[in-house]
Design a protein around this nucleic acid. Structure first.
Lengths: 146, 146
DNA sequence: CAATAATAGTTGCCTTAGCAACTATATTAT
DNA sequence: ATAATATAGTTGCTAAGGCAACTATTATTG
């Protein structure tokens, strides 16, 4: 029977290691993992996401999204354009420079995913994802109720 | 089939929510979650752990452990005593004050664990823990090899 | 035994992220 | 239409953790 300590250890370890691997892969591109996360999302959804949408999909608050987008703009990977139908919002879109390195970024993330799944049968992994989602839901419900 | 994005979302969400719940429970005791993590470990292993051991068990670097222990010493929850057999190391032990609130701390962590497992049959949860451990191992191996 | 290497901690600097307070625009209700 | 409220973002402050460089003790090895 797993203890809570073991459970946390695994959880923390997974996220930390994954981030370190991503950081190492992106370093030559002068990108951090937080920046990579955003680019990775924009690469599939590249008709332009608002920062609001990014906070949803990345499960990160709007403050860090704002700052990371700042940094990406500074590095020339992303453009902030006012949303045509809502003057409060921006549309964040990739620049040429970002599209050019798109494949490297996707490789980095997909590579980590391969490592994660290594040696785990498809069906088992699917089960894992479902259970994790359940756990996330449990905690979210508890937090809100509180 | 789960995408890497969904998988990360769940993972991040679990850790974030859990930490927020712990923070909320510990706030009345004037403790942060990082401090709580250490106290929780000392409560079961309370013949005194070195900071080195704490870094292992918490999966956190020695720098943050050093600073968090500092802070716990400052708040009077923990004592740093030189290790009798090794003048480099400390033994970190709980004070009376910490023992007094021990039950509250354990309740906080066990409560979160209850929430995590809610609605998941024992055997399933055990499976989840095993798989997570496997994933952690995969990533760790990949990181070291690199 | 002296020199080198390993271990335990500390400190400075940086990244990531949360919260709260703020601005500016949109929406809703009276 | 005006007032109240909600939404999109920004900024300041703080918590948490990583990395690298440092000190001070062991351990190892020639």
């Amino acid at each position: 029977m797993p203890t809570i300590r073991d459970f946390w250890l695994s959880m923390k370890s997974v996220l930390r290691c994954a981030r370190q691997i991503i950081n190492a892969e992106l370093e030559p591109l002068n990108l951090t993992s937080a920046e990579g996360d955003i680019l990775f999302h924009l690469l599939t959804d590249n008709d332009g996401l608002t920062q609001e949408k990014l906070t949803e999909r990345l499960d990160v608050g709007k403050a860090p999204v704002s700052r990371t987008v700042d940094s990406l703009v500074g590095k020339g990977y992303v453009k902030r354009v006012r949303h045509p139908n809502d003057a409060r919002a921006y549309r964040i879109t990739l620049t040429e420079k970002a599209v050019d390195i798109g494949a490297s970024i996707e490789n980095a993330y997909n590579g980590v995913y391969e490592i994660v799944k290594r040696g785990i049968p498809e069906a088992e992994f699917e089960r894992l994802a479902v259970l994790l989602n359940r756990v996330a839901g449990n905690l979210h419900a508890a937090e809100v109720k509180k």
